[in-house]
Simulated scan of single mutants.
Amino acid sequence: MAMPAVARETVFALRRQIAKIEGTLPERLEAPAGAPGAIPGKVRSGFPSGIAEKQIYRDAAGSEITIVRRGLAVAPQDAFLPTGIEGLDTALGGGLPKAALSEIHGAETRDAGAVAGFALSLASLILREKQGLPVLWIGTAEIFREAGFPYARGLNGLFGVAPGQLLFSEAPKLLDALWIAEEAARMTAFAAVILEIRGSPHKLDLTATRRLHARAQSAGRPVLLLRQAGEAEPTAAPVRVIVSAAPAASRRTVAGPLAGSIGRPAFTVAIGKSRTALPGQFTLEWNPDEHAFAERSAPQERAENPVAVVSASLRGADPAPASGSVLAFPAIGSPAAGGQPPRQQHPAHRRPRRAG
């Protein structure tokens, strides 16, 4: 039995209202098969590039019902922060939303540096538009103890961020960090708010991310959620990217690539979630002089190092060959054969052990 036109319109209105609260449009809102008066069509959205599919249905009263599919909302062009990479911005539907919660994931703990570097690159782009406002970076004591703080002297040199433009807030617990992030996200005194957490804590659920997303929308400021070794979970963030470190290319000079050198910082950015639902993976380089991203072309990829990073143990089988030049050091104080120093070098061994 076909759904009545009034009931169908009510369902569509409720879905649009829920999507507006969550900050996302439903990816698929279709009328039942064979619905009367269906007029499919396509319209160009407000994004710099991309097509939003729109279908128009007429109910029994003759009024039009517009259904937008694939999550491409009509929004002003200045509602997004473009990365400058055409392919990435197109896949994201225009770039990162300026007034929303965005997730930046690192699959492993060792990717924390790449995630932080990518967030600082985005902060540099944000501060270019919001001059005079600082960025607040929130984290727990565990986060800063594990990953450390950004190097103050490198902020200005690599990202053009003055040390006074980046404020840190260290919270003892995750609940405290979430409370600080919610209060800061509603303020217009910050250009952006960065919340860094570790893993997938159950306290960072869909309700908590909805509050952060709603505060960001209300203040018109971006909130970046950095996840160290976090799993992809349902959140209210319309955008999620997975960032890892990419091998640095050789430094480019007038005479060509300089062999054995380390070039600009590079990131591998994969789209895990977006309004367009378009997949993609990009290798980006950060230009510290122009403070802008550049997409690396295939010929600039660095070849894999055929030498093992760490040689195998001498007691293991088939040890890896030594890399580089072998230097001879004085044998004074070297351990004896067998891997242990002579007993006379450890006078503490002759002392009686303490009891209790």
Rank of each mutant, 00 (worst) to 15 (best):
L122F: 10
A61G: 10
G113D: 10
Q77N: 06
D111F: 05
R70A: 11
L125M: 13
D59P: 02
L120N: 01
E86Q: 11
K98Y: 00
A99D: 01
P36Y: 13
D78P: 04
Q77D: 09
A91F: 06
G117Q: 05
G62I: 14
G46P: 03
G37M: 06
I138V: 15
G71E: 00
A116E: 05
E129N: 08
F149G: 00
L136E: 10
F80L: 08
T109M: 15
V115A: 02
I85G: 01
A141T: 13
R58E: 06
G46W: 01
Q131E: 14
L81T: 01
I104Y: 03
T109N: 11
A100M: 00
I67K: 00
T140G: 12
W137Y: 15
A60E: 13
G37Q: 06
A79S: 15
Y151K: 08
Q55W: 06
G84W: 09
I39Q: 13
A147K: 02
W137T: 10
D78Y: 12
A73W: 01
I126Q: 07
G37F: 06
L120C: 03
G113T: 07
V115Q: 07
T83P: 00
K42D: 09
Y57I: 11
A114E: 03
R145S: 10
Q77Y: 05
D111L: 04
G106N: 11
A147F: 05
G113V: 05
E142Y: 07
P134T: 13
E64Y: 07
P40L: 11
I51P: 03
T140V: 09
L72M: 07
A99G: 02
L133T: 06
P40H: 12
Q77V: 15
G87L: 02
V68N: 03
L120R: 02
K54Y: 01
F149M: 13
I56R: 06
P40W: 11
G87W: 08
A60G: 07
V74Y: 08
I65E: 05
Q131N: 05
R110I: 12
R69K: 08
T83D: 09
F149T: 11
E108S: 15
E129W: 07
F80W: 07
A75Y: 00
S45P: 02
P40C: 11
I143T: 13
I39E: 14
F47P: 00
D78A: 12
R58F: 15
A147P: 00
S63Q: 15
P36Q: 12
G106H: 09
E86F: 10
L92Q: 06
V135I: 15
G139Q: 13
A112K: 01
Y151E: 14
L96M: 14
S63L: 14
V68F: 02
P150R: 11
L122C: 10
G95E: 09
L136Y: 04
E64M: 14
G93T: 05
R128N: 14
